[in-house]
Design a protein around this nucleic acid. Structure first.
Ligand SMILES: [Mn+2]
Ligand SMILES: [Mn+2]
Ligand SMILES: [Zn+2]
Ligand SMILES: [Zn+2]
Lengths: 136, 136
DNA sequence: TTGATCTTTGCAATCGAGTTGCGTGACAAG
DNA sequence: CTTGTCACGCAACTCGATTGCAAAGATCAA
């Protein structure tokens, strides 16, 4: 896995104290994180600073956001080489039991046959159910 | 298409003035409606009444909700015979240009090969891009 | 018909995630 | 050192969603 410094370097985002701790936190988590999650984890860092950091990361394709229906936007670090193009699309899974959301990078993404003259630019795909830990 | 009365009857939801106008409005629209959309269309009906009506409709599978990332939950009338089971899953399309969201009932839903021991219960699938009206 | 009971509605208040304005401080170029 | 740019922290604010409460309406048994 790439380090915080390497990622920021590659994506041409200046390294700062807040960016380092936010990105390090995101990398350390298996589940996608909400602003509140990060705020709770980084108690000495201001919410708006985290917020703007997330915006910066998203604009520079360091992370991508997921709308899982929980009412809070979740963020996850992009896979190495990701450009957030349609080719980088992947499913997400939201567990109804443990409320974790994560990227299913290994599930092949099926091409969708849209009606005539429709053009896909992005997608937000969230499968909901029970994760392997919660499915008895 | 079924009438308002027929739908309420089938789904065992008591008919009231607010429910009638809300459901009639939803049926009359081609795009999925937000609470605000409905509020604007039904200027004499209170927001909280519309809100609770939507909850009632959703609980009774008269409508389903769509999170398209616009910041407002959208609602669309379920297809005839829909039980909001996995078999009733379908894609949604959000147009980045005209901001309309609608159900793609005619696009076949691809089965997703989840990892071992994962169980799908619902899904929120939103394809974003340009609709046929906006794709020049 | 009447009174008790349950449901629906309207209004106002509240919640909370997200967002923004602004002053301070860090840093870098000149 | 001087100046400009950018990141940061704090507080205030936005706005969609949600709730408490009392009035109005529907239901039903007697
Ligand atoms: Mn992802
Ligand atoms: Mn739909
Ligand atoms: Zn789980
Ligand atoms: Zn369009």
């Amino acid at each position: 896995m790439q380090t915080v410094d390497e990622i920021l370097k590659i994506k041409n985002v200046k390294n700062t104290a807040v960016r380092t701790v936010v990105l390090r936190h995101l990398l350390s988590q298996e589940k996608a994180q909400s602003l509140k999650d990060i705020e709770n984890a980084l108690i000495y860092t201001d919410r708006s600073s985290i917020f703007r950091t997330l915006k910066t990361f998203e604009e520079n394709k360091i992370i991508h956001s997921i709308e899982d229906g929980s009412g809070m936007i979740k963020y996850a670090v992009c896979a190495e080489g990701c450009n957030c193009d349609p080719k980088d699309l992947h499913y997400h899974f939201y567990c109804n039991n443990c409320n974790k959301t994560f990227c299913l990078f290994d599930v092949p993404f099926q091409n969708i046959e849209l009606p005539e003259n429709f053009k896909m630019q992005q997608a937000n795909m969230v499968v909901k159910g029970l994760c392997n830990n919660c499915n008895d």
